[in-house]
Every structure is written in structure tokens, then in C-alpha cells.
Design a protein around this nucleic acid. Structure first.
Lengths: 203, 203
DNA sequence: CGCCAACCGGAACAAGGTTCCGATCCTACC
DNA sequence: GGTAGGATCGGAACCTTGTTCCGGTTGGCG
């Protein structure tokens, strides 16, 4: 048997693996689906019908299931993507703002992320094994992002040292949960929290 | 217009309301459904199909929806019934055993109750408004039951006084959650907890 | 330019919740 | 005891939603 789609490796590319180039239309479909799912999940929750997502993405049902064999794969893909985006914002903010400000802005960004997670918490607790790896992904990506920002703020003397990044992530997440509708309230509470961070700082 | 099914009030019965007598077959169906649902929920979780419950109860689908207009009504009915049964066990145990023993036995009963609640916790967190009143019902019935037992045990000098009934209910419930399969483990932990109750008691 | 594997669309299937309505069965009344 | 009538029953049918399947289409390479 021949290796399927072994096309041939390109110059300057590692030949260790055949890296089949994805077709342009396939990539387009995948991106459109991710984007559509993200928007619809934010509005209707993660229980939104697959057909609705397919329609908004402008693709057929078969295309959805080609890229995401199960509904839950679409959910986790969106979740991972959003986690990545949120984590990626950290170094950008750190480069553009002073430490304490970068920290504050990133937490705003994190709140925005959590705000779209209606129903996902329930899904995580549903016992569906498809969602089991998500908490780990969450911790593996967001914690280091926050740790960097927090470390810089501590080093600059503007924030006390006895604050744990994971604690802070969980605390802010919990602040987001009850006020699913009232974003302003959440922001006030988190603002309070940030002020608390500064209490007893060296500077 | 005549009052529908106003049959007529009976001697010795308050005439304040017409109390339409439920038909015997209807009552039978309702009881059979509650019992069937209880058994099936315990085995397959609260997501079990309505058809399966109807079949086990030996009734048609229409009968299910006559008594429980929505699926969730069946779930809450079973939940309420089990809470009632569990709460009702408290005075019986109190009458038949010394205080500390009654307390221990009732907590065993409570554990048994919690053990069948697989998936219900997730349902409660799903945001479905149909389940919103359940936590209140839980607190309104089980807390007084435990408070009575706890009070008697304290009064007898066998249990310390600084234990709150609600805290205890939640703590035991949490002990039940992780060990969905290993009932023995849960019982060991709760046993430990009960011994803790005696620590520092007057007697 | 032409091939063909990968990709696409959507019809079709499966499962589960809910509705509907003719047939049936209690209960009240005579 | 018998009967009328409305409550109740059973299950077929309908709708929504997840998933599979397959014939038609197309991007990318030779």
C-alpha cells in the first residue's frame, strides 16, 4: 500500500513528516465554522444546533462533520481557540503598557472571555468525557500568561507578592459567574480585586 | 356554566373547595410513573428517555405527558418525593434509636439518597429554570429534619454544639460527589465526620 | 490541461421530546 | 344495576437535533 496523499515534501521543509498541505477551501470552511460557532455559542449557548452553525458559516452539514466529527469537537475547538487568543493578548499588552496597566487590561480581556461561557460550565460538569481535557488546557495556557503579567507587576513594586495566579484566575471566573447579565457589576468587583493586589506593595 | 366535575361535597368534608376526587386509575398511573422514573433515573441518570420510563411504568406516552407536562416535571417530582421520604425518616429514626445513633442512621439514609443523584447536579447547573426551585425545596425540608436530630444529640450531651445543620448537609453531599462508585469510601469519610461531631461534647 | 483524492452539500436515518385524538374506563347519578 | 359523560389512556405522528452516507465538485499537482 502506498502512503496516501504523500505528494512529496518541499524544499526547505523538514522531511520528517509528509505534512499534507490542507486545501484552501478546507481551511476556509474550518475557519468559517470556528468563527460561526464562536458567535452562536456566545449568543445561544453551547447547546445551539449544529445546523444553525453550518448555516451561519455558509457550509453544508457534511462539512461540519468532516472537520468536527462530533458536536463536542466543535465546542472544544472554539474553547481552545478563545483560550489561545486570550493568552496571546498577554505579551502584547505587556509590551504596550506599564505592568499594572497591562495586568488590568488583560483581566478585562479575561472577563470578556468568561462572559461568553454561558452553559459551558454546565457542560464541563455533565460528565461527558469529551470535555475532560479542557480544564487542563485552560490551566496550561492562561496561568502562565497571567503569571508573566503578575510577575512583572510584582517586580515593578506595584503589586504585592503573595498573590497566586491560579487563585486569581479562579476568583475572577467566579466573579463572572453570578452576574451573567451585568457586566458592569463584574468589572467593579474585579477592579476592587485589582486594587487589593496593590495593597501592601513595595512601591 | 356549571362548575365542571363539581360532583358535590361530602359530609364531614370542608366545603371550602370542591376537591375533585382523582380517579383511581389516574392515581395508579401517577404513582407507577413516579416509581418507574425513580428507578430509571437511579440507573441511567436523569437523561433517560421518557419512553423508557413510560414502558417500565406500563403506561402510554400520552399518560406521562398528562401527569407531567414536561420532562423536567417528572424529574422534579421524583426529586421532591425522595426529599420528602428522606426527611420523613428523621422522626422515625429519632423515635426508635438513641440520639447519636439516630443521627448516624439518618446520615446513612441521606447518603443513599445522594448516591442516586448522578447527573442531577449537572442539571441544576444547566440554567434550566424548571429546576430553579429545587435547591430551596431541598433546604426547606432536609435542613429541619437534620436540625431536629442534631439538636437532640447535642441536648443529650453526645455531640458538640458548634455544628450547623446546613454545613453538615453540604459537607456530606460533597463527600458523596467524588465517590460516585465507591459507596464504602463515602461511608468511611462520613463516619469520620460523625466521630468529629462527638469531639469535645459535654458527655 | 487533466486527473483524482479531498472536499462539499444535503438528503436520509436515528433518537428523543411533545402533541393529538379516537378508544377506553372510572365515577356519579338514577 | 345500568348508563351517560367527562377524565384518562395509548400510541401514532410530528418536530427538532445529532450523525451518517454518498454522489457531485474542485483545488492542487504532475
Amino acid at each position: 500500500m502506498f502512503r496516501l496523499a504523500g505528494g512529496g515534501s518541499r524544499v526547505g521543509e523538514s522531511t520528517a513528516e509528509p505534512v499534507r498541505r490542507v486545501r484552501a477551501d478546507a481551511q476556509r470552511s474550518r475557519d468559517a465554522l470556528r468563527e460561526a460557532a464562536k458567535e452562536i455559542f456566545a449568543v445561544s449557548g453551547v447547546d445551539a444546533p449544529v445546523r444553525e452553525i453550518a448555516e451561519r458559516a455558509g457550509v453544508g452539514l457534511g462539512t461540519v462533520y468532516r472537520h468536527f466529527p462530533q458536536r463536542s469537537d466543535l465546542v472544544t475547538a472554539v474553547f481552545r481557540y478563545e483560550i489561545d487568543q486570550c493568552a496571546a493578548a498577554a505579551p502584547e499588552l505587556a509590551a504596550a503598557h506599564p505592568p499594572i496597566e497591562a495586568l488590568r487590561l488583560w483581566l478585562d480581556r479575561y472577563i470578556e472571555f468568561m462572559a461568553t461561557k454561558r452553559g459551558l460550565v454546565a457542560a464541563l460538569h455533565s460528565g461527558d468525557p469529551a470535555f475532560a481535557p479542557l480544564p487542563g488546557y485552560f490551566d496550561a495556557h492562561l496561568r502562565p500568561a497571567l503569571e508573566t503579567l503578575l510577575g512583572a507587576a510584582v517586580a515593578s513594586g506595584q503589586v504585592r507578592r503573595d498573590v497566586d495566579a491560579k487563585d486569581l484566575l479562579v476568583a475572577v471566573a467566579n466573579l463572572c459567574l453570578p452576574a451573567e447579565e451585568d457586566a458592569a457589576h463584574t468589572r467593579r468587583m474585579v477592579s476592587l480585586l485589582i486594587d487589593g493586589l496593590r495593597y501592601g506593595a513595595g512601591h
